[in-house]
């Protein structure tokens, strides 16, 4: 982890404990997770006890404490998606990839996560793939998406940017 980027994240926010969540958001965005080292640096930089940094990082769902897979499949489990069969999609993803929600596949290619609402309820069920929304999903469409992503693994950078 390049420490200068962490330093940049902290710039202008030093000794401001109220910036803790904002700083952690930026670290999460840049690195994909919050490491122990990052928490220590943030603790010193903002003047917040390490235990409080850990408490906040583990309390909010936005923060991951472990790296995620290269492709993050996020299943929306909001009410609107639920009544349209979001459960099927979670079963499809966990069954096909052999992991539980929150876990990463052994090859590091996929992690499956679920969130309580992505706020695109009219188009449910929604699956977000690295932040890009796929609407009106079915198990079959999801299966194809997983296969497509799996075969992209050799093509280098295939990041789909969040909109």
């Amino acid at each position: 982890m390049p420490p200068q980027t962490l330093e940049q994240t902290l710039e202008g926010r030093r000794s401001q404990p109220n910036q803790l969540i904002e700083v952690l958001q930026d670290i999460q965005k840049n690195y994909g997770y919050i490491s122990k080292e990052a928490m220590q640096i943030v603790s010193q930089g903002l003047g917040v006890p390490l235990i409080e940094v850990y408490r906040v990082a583990s309390f909010y769902k936005a923060f991951r404490l472990k790296p995620s897979g290269k492709n993050v499949l996020t299943m929306c489990m909001g009410t609107a998606c639920h009544v349209r069969g979001a459960r099927l999609l979670l079963d499809q993803a966990t069954g096909q990839l052999g992991v539980k929600p929150g876990e990463v596949t052994p090859d590091g290619l996929f992690s499956v996560e679920h969130v309580n609402c992505l706020g695109a309820c009219a188009l449910g069920p929604i699956v977000a793939e690295n932040g890009s929304y796929h609407h009106h999903m079915t198990p079959a469409k999801l299966r194809k998406l997983v296969e497509t992503l799996r075969h992209q693994k050799t093509e280098g950078n295939q990041n789909v940017q969040a909109q």
């Binding site: 109220n18 969540i21 904002e22 958001q25 906040v56 769902k61 936005a62």
Partner: peptide, 21 residues
């Protein structure tokens, strides 16, 4: 920015979160 906690829709929890807690 919120951190993805439903409880932060509650006014006092939200204020704690704005304070970075």
């Amino acid at each position: 920015r919120g951190g993805g906690a439903f409880v932060c829709g509650e006014s006092t929890a939200l204020m704690a979160s704005v304070e970075g807690k």
